[in-house]
């Protein structure tokens, strides 16, 4: 094929893919706010995302907080600024690491599972069966997962923030010999409500993106095991990239002067 034609064809395919995603998103969001709702499925998804992801998110943020305390101590010691360790840990965790790490972990765990489940339903005609039984698949499958993602991720991040700060506290107090009361005072002293709120807003956006990508790629899954496998991979990769891109955007919105 002519190279220019190949570039043009790829660009058109990209535009078509963006168009499909935009249409899917618009339809999914509109079904999130229009009845009928499926509260039992929503609750099941909230438990699946919010409760069963707790160990993964907890462990990730715990060790991130610990490493952060250790690394910032060794760095700041060069400038005799060890006292800033607690502040650095709490701000890094609440503003960035908590939401981003939780988002990425949930993308791996939940995004993949959503894509695989919905993809399998597509391949085995279960989605067609839903339609023939007068049930809109967007309302039954997509909307509860997106709502659950938006509701659960902030909760997970809040827990992750606390666990991450606690990880920093353990290293600070028991390994680096900080005074416990001083460490806690430094943690609270410079923490502002906006630091936590921005992290929770990020979490809600990341939850939306993870669920959206999981549902979108599952819904458009190709035939057979290979199609479902590709959908799973695409869901995790696209959700992870979108999390990192949107993280920059939200940070700019909240903190750029």
């Amino acid at each position: 094929m002519n190279p220019i034609a190949a570039i043009g064809s790829t660009f058109l395919e990209f535009l078509a893919a963006v168009g499909r995603l935009v249409l899917f998103t618009a339809s999914a969001v509109s079904h999130c706010v229009r009845p009928p709702f499926y509260p039992r499925i929503l609750l099941r998804q909230i438990i699946e995302i919010g409760f069963y992801s707790l160990p993964v998110v907890g462990l990730t943020t715990l060790f991130s907080g610990m490493v952060l305390a250790l690394q910032s101590y060794t760095g700041f010691a060069r400038f005799s600024a060890e006292g800033a360790v607690a502040t650095v840990v709490v701000l890094s965790i609440t503003r960035e690491l908590g939401p981003v790490l939780a988002g990425l972990m949930v993308a791996g765990r939940i995004g993949a599972s959503m894509a695989a489940e919905i993809g399998t339903m597509r391949v085995t005609e279960q989605i067609d069966a839903l339609t023939t039984l007068s049930t809109n698949p967007y309302k039954y499958l997509v909307a509860p997962r997106i709502l659950a993602g938006v509701i659960s991720l902030p909760f997970l991040v809040l827990v992750g923030d606390i666990v991450g700060v606690f990880g920093g506290y353990i290293v600070g107090v028991y390994k680096l010999d900080f005074n416990a009361a001083t460490y806690l005072q430094r943690t609270i002293e410079f923490l502002e409500p906006m630091d936590v709120i921005s992290g929770l807003v990020k979490a809600a956006v990341f939850g939306f993106l993870v669920a959206l990508m999981g549902c979108y790629h599952g819904y458009r899954s190709g035939r057979g095991a290979q199609g479902v496998g590709a959908a799973t991979t695409n869901a995790v990769v696209s959700a992870s990239i979108l999390i990192l891109i949107s993280n920059y955007g939200i940070t700019t919105l909240f903190f750029s002067q």
Partner: peptide, 9 residues
């Protein structure tokens, strides 16, 4: 449906 299309879950 050909393969039943029963809901697994």
């Amino acid at each position: 449906f050909q393969n039943g299309a029963l809901f697994d879950s």
